[in-house]
């Protein structure tokens, strides 16, 4: 085990090269609906229990099924209303289980990125070969069902190995060269994209995916009241919008439609989206678009600055 992650260097949020988003936008806003499939009777993983009760664990399973049966369509209607395309963190087995949802996602021009096969199959305990097999399966499944070359990764149920980012980058390169496997959502260390070192040396970055704004963390872990979540989203946006005058920032709203699309939570979410999209200098983007823009326009300057701030270049 390593003492520190070691895939990025210290890089202060201070005097960084300016990020310029399209049309002078201050904030790149992306919404990342997690479209997940949880199994009723998953195999046991020795490192993490899927459910607190013996299978069938209805309390956890059924509310997540609610997300698929009821919730996604509500959020689709809402994002349509505010002109936002979702960037879907996908349990790819859902392509086979519930293809109608994938059809709706594709009709809207939303992005699909990999969130593993099922959210009840964890990375823990997998050999490197097994993890590679799982990640390749996920990228191939997305391609088969949507024609999209998967650019991003959020490990299933946030379960990682030391090699997760390397393997995702390599699987993307093997399958689609530089068109796939170039950003991760698994790092929560920054409010701007940052370069990340991967084993095959490709240009690879972290795109901010805020756990603090993640509805499951907010509602299920931190037990926040729905309307306060709305307030948090507005405050989070306000500060990033203000700072975005100096250099472009990223705001991500990760959602789960078994949380945010419950009837008692929709109003607060809608009000926050209305507020945010009511500002002029917001780029409504997808994760891939943010990553591509950054890789093209900011990545090289970032590497230089990181070296400089760490004493490598004068």
């Amino acid at each position: 085990m390593k003492e520190s992650l070691g895939v990025y260097d210290y890089w202060p949020y201070h005097n960084r090269p300016k990020i310029e988003w399209p049309n002078g936008a201050r904030v790149a806003l992306w919404v990342a609906p997690n479209i997940e499939f949880y199994e009723l009777d998953p195999p046991a993983n020795p490192h993490r229990k899927a459910w607190p009760q013996p299978s069938p664990a209805l309390p956890g399973y059924t509310i997540r099924d609610y997300g698929n049966r009821v919730g996604h369509r509500r959020q689709m209607d809402l994002l349509d209303k505010y002109g936002i395309r979702g960037s879907v963190s996908l349990s790819v087995a859902l392509c086979e289980h519930h293809p109608e949802i994938i059809d709706r996602v594709c009709e809207r021009g939303w992005e699909l990125f990999s969130h593993g096969i099922y959210n009840t199959r964890y990375t823990y305990g997998l050999s490197e070969e097994q993890e590679m097999e799982m990640i390749r399966d996920s990228i191939e499944t997305i391609y088969r069902h949507s024609g999209q070359k998967c650019a991003g990764y959020l490990a299933p149920a946030l379960s990682h190995s030391e090699r997760t980012l390397d393997l995702f980058a390599e699987a993307g390169s093997d399958l689609f060269g530089d068109d796939a496997g170039f950003y991760t959502c698994d790092l929560f260390h920054d409010d701007q994209p940052t370069p990340v070192r991967v084993r095959n040396g490709k240009r690879f970055i972290s795109v901010p995916y805020s756990l603090e704004m993640n509805d499951t963390i907010v509602y299920a872990v931190n037990k926040v009241e729905p309307r306060h979540y709305g307030t948090m989203l507005k405050r989070h946006f306000d500060r990033l919008y203000e700072e975005g005058k100096e250099s472009g920032t990223v705001m991500c709203i990760p959602t789960h439609n078994y949380q945010v699309s419950c009837p008692h939570r929709m109003k607060a979410f809608e009000e926050a989206l209305e507020y945010i999209t009511g500002h002029s200098d917001v780029w409504l983007a997808t994760g891939r678009e943010i990553a591509e823009h950054y890789l093209t326009h900011s990545y090289d300057a970032a590497l230089e600055d990181i070296k400089r701030k760490n004493g490598g270049v004068q």
């Binding site: 499939f37 199994e39 009723l40 009777d41 195999p43 993983n45 020795p46 069938p56 099924d65 698929n68 049966r69 009821v70 996604h72 369509r73 087995a93 086979e96 289980h97 519930h98 293809p99 109608e100 949802i101 096969i117 099922y118 199959r121 305990g125 997998l126 050999s127 070969e129 097994q130 097999e133 799982m134 399966d137």
Partner: peptide, 26 residues
């Protein structure tokens, strides 16, 4: 490593992973 069956998905197909009710969106 984990047993091979951890990466096998016998119920990875259309509908739910059980047959108690039909899959449909509200």
């Amino acid at each position: 490593s984990l047993d091979k069956d951890y990466l096998e998905y016998p119920k990875r197909g259309y509908g739910h992973d059980h047959d108690r009710y039909e899959w449909s969106m509200l």
